[in-house]
């Protein structure tokens, strides 16, 4: 049985697709057979970031509607073994994702994969609900600014009420906070919320902090998940996040300007 992880945020443009690409790549690098699924039907981007847009023949909606088999639609990544991409359809709308159809595809994939990473569209409408419904774990991607934190709070509420685990009274979805575009200088100048502020409002466990970095932009323009840029801070921070997702303990890095006592407080208890 695969573990299903949804990457979600409510707000758009905070780094969901970048995160989905890097987390799935990181899991595959660790030897887990992983598929990353683009739920953003009509606005697909994941294939661009994974540099496989020229290899898309069939997509998620084709599989749901029985026009293609899963094996025809899954694209094998050329850089990392064990990594597969299921692209979204660009020509349909989100209503094409039916609850029964998504369930069927995820059930079939669960038999052969270790991890399924679902890249959610922005918003709290049908597409986002379909992406989070089946999740066992949720990575809530948040930027250190008020509107993003508010939307993350909203999506956490939806995870607690509208996910399959909530509806069927199972253990709740395991929630992780991933703070992206973190710029410690701007935090010190008071232009951004600090990690502590965000934690205070959302109060869920911290998966990682990704520093704001030119490497992220370069990587997505080149169609390469930033986690493959070993020497960049953002790549290192994603590698740490994957390790924590797998239950390993890693100290927080790349938080210049934060006091040491603060780090201890984060992980001391």
């Amino acid at each position: 049985m695969a573990r299903i992880i949804v990457v979600t945020s409510g707000k758009g443009g905070v780094g969901k697709t970048t995160t989905s690409a890097s987390i799935s790549t990181g899991l595959a690098q660790r030897g887990y057979k992983t598929a990353v699924i683009d739920f953003d039907v009509g606005l697909r981007n994941l294939d661009l970031i994974m540099n496989c847009e020229r290899r898309v023949v069939y997509d998620f909606v084709n599989v749901i509607q029985g026009e293609a088999t899963l094996n025809q639609a899954l694209i094998r990544d050329k850089r990392v073994e064990n990594l597969f991409i299921l692209p979204a359809s660009q020509t349909r709308d989100k209503e094409a994702l039916t609850a029964e159809g998504v369930q069927k595809v995820l059930d079939e994939m669960s038999e052969t994969f270790d991890y399924l990473v679902c890249d959610s569209p922005a918003g709290i409408e049908h597409g986002a609900l379909m992406a989070l419904y089946h999740a066992d774990e949720a990575i809530v991607v948040t930027n250190p600014e008020v509107s993003s934190v508010r939307d993350s709070d909203r999506i956490l509420g939806i995870l607690q009420s509208k996910s399959r685990r909530a509806e069927q009274g199972m253990d709740p979805v395991k929630e992780h906070l991933l703070l992206t575009r973190y710029n410690s200088e701007r935090v010190e100048r008071g232009e951004m919320l600090s990690l502590e502020d965000v934690n205070d409002i959302l109060s869920i466990s911290l998966l990682g902090v990704i520093p704001e970095s030119q490497a992220v932009l370069n990587a997505s323009n080149q169609g390469s998940p930033v986690i493959l840029e070993d020497e960049s801070e953002a790549g290192g921070a994603y590698a740490d996040a994957v390790a924590r997702l797998l239950g390993e303990e890693r100290p927080l890095r790349f938080l210049d300007g934060q006091k040491k006592g603060f780090l201890k407080r984060m992980f001391g208890g």
Binding site: R150, D151, D153, R154, L156, G157, I158, Q160, S161, I201, L202, S203
Partner: peptide, 23 residues
Amino acid sequence: PVRSGQQVYAPEGDLIIMAPVGA
């Protein structure tokens, strides 16, 4: 925590919340 968009109602008696009530 009671999250943004959520509503909790105690139609009788008191309501006790052992967590933050979000904006």
